[in-house]
Amino acid sequence: MTVEEDQGFSHLVVAAVQMAPRVGHTADNVARSVALIEQAATQGASIVVLPELANSGYVFASRAEAFALAEPVPDGPSTQAWAEVARRCNVHVVAGIAEREGDRLYNAAVVLGPRGWLGTYRKLHLWGDEHLFFEPGNKGLPVFHTELGRLGVLICYDGWFPETYRLLAMQGADIVCMPTNWVPMPHQPTDRPAMATTLAMASAHSNGLNIVCADRTGTERGQPFVGQSLIVGARGWPLAGPASIDSEEILCARIDLRASRQARHLNVFNDVLRDRRDDIYDPMLGTGWPLPPH
């Protein structure tokens, strides 16, 4: 389904794919993800988000293993397989991938449309052992302009930093696609949803952004993942999910882009972007204050 025009409002269906990649089983992981993308497309989705490192798995034993499982973008086999299913199903796909550029590795996400590769986002904030394998992202926070709206991308731990969402919103993003591999947080109450879901809801509300969080499930080399994939609307309330902790699922939700862009207007007086005190900090979050002497 592409954007529908219905009485002046633009509607589209987004999907978060929750799956369980297995480290080292790249061909199987990609084949399973392609099948799930196809299923999401049959449910009307025009944007499909896959988990973080959906092709390679997450818990690497060594940098040599990570390097062997990483691929060039956009010419590697995983990106090419996702590009083909995006073309065939007429969808946009955002998929987490272990990217290799020369001798550098990045925890990245490729953005693909029916006409091919649109660009790559590289995770800015590395978590835990990722520091042993990956370089911090060096492509900033791009916004991809598509016929379906303006797409931003974040990966997992990036969502702990409110600046990332704010900078995407300031660039006009409509939807933030988040491939993620959420792990249990210390002191997380067992009877409460994952902290990551709360952060996504708060960030959506405070920036007027739709956020599509596609998490993985399962336990890999002793590391459990929490599932609970989620699609949050621009007013901060869940549109679909949270998903289960331990099952593959496809969450779908309909987004009204016109209404989403109006969500930043909280009332006749207040707008979450307009009300920013840019006399204190500049619109793109720099303070403008002199650095302290070294």
Rank of each mutant, 00 (worst) to 15 (best):
M1Q: 04
D6W: 15
Q7T: 15
G8V: 15
F9H: 15
H11I: 05
L12M: 08
L12A: 00
V17I: 10
M19R: 12
A27L: 01
A54W: 08
A54F: 11
N55I: 09
V59R: 08
F60G: 04
F60W: 12
S78V: 08
W82L: 14
C89E: 07
N90R: 08
V91A: 00
A98Q: 10
E101H: 14
Y106C: 03
P114L: 01
P114R: 01
R122K: 09
R122D: 03
F133A: 01
N138W: 00
G140I: 05
T146D: 06
L154V: 04
I155S: 02
Y165C: 14
Q171V: 02
I175E: 00
M185R: 14
M195R: 15
T198W: 14
T198C: 11
A200R: 05
M201Y: 08
S203G: 15
I211Q: 04
D215W: 00
R216A: 04
R216W: 07
A234E: 01
G236R: 12
E249R: 05
L251M: 10
R254K: 11
R261D: 03
Q262E: 09
D271T: 05
Y281V: 13
P283L: 06
M284L: 12
W289D: 15
L291Q: 12
L291T: 08
L291V: 06
P293D: 07
